[in-house]
């Protein structure tokens, strides 16, 4: 079997990596329509051709701050439990196969990322935090329900 593919991105200064089979695309979003009465990380709705994405700010989830959105914010498109989401991130660096895949977590992950840490990925001689996209959706669904 060939080595698993990972997407490498940056959120709030942290390098993260996620398996590419969890996501569909990385796009620049157009206009985002805000939604009232929702959790702070729900930034709004955006149209991607005929699909409507619920835009989730990953930075808000981990730090509580809002990502500053330029003209065309960058988002990862992913489908979780039948709904399509756009996850706002700061930067995407690469998509690469990683020989050996995920490594176990070492050290103590900070409180912000603790609930999202799946493992670590060694890529270009640097460690990236391995995360899973559905976690960002489910965790906040829980917090919204609370």
């Amino acid at each position: 079997m060939s080595a698993p593919l990972f997407l490498f991105a940056t959120v709030a200064g942290t390098d993260i990596a996620m398996p590419t089979d969890e996501l569909e695309a990385v796009v620049h979003l157009g206009e985002i329509m805000p939604i009232a009465r929702t959790a702070p990380q729900v930034r709004g709705l955006a149209a991607l051709r005929s699909r409507v994405l619920t835009v989730i700010d990953v930075r808000t989830l981990v730090t509580g701050d809002l990502t500053e959105m330029g003209r065309a914010p960058l988002a990862i498109v992913a489908e979780v439990e039948g709904h399509t989401y756009g996850l706002l991130i700061d930067r995407v660096s690469d998509i690469c196969p990683v020989e050996g895949g995920m490594l176990p977590v070492r050290g103590r992950v900070g409180a912000a990322w603790e609930s999202y840490a799946k493992g670590m990925i060694l890529f270009e001689n640097r460690l990236h935090l391995a995360v899973s996209i559905p976690d960002f959706i489910r965790q906040q669904a829980l917090s919204a329900a609370a």
């Binding site: 009232a36 929702t38 959790a39 729900v42 619920t54 439990e81 709904h83 399509t84 669904a141 329900a145």
Partner: peptide, 8 residues
């Protein structure tokens, strides 16, 4: 709509 939106 996604659950987070319906939560409103």
């Amino acid at each position: 709509a996604s659950p987070v939106v319906m939560a409103a």
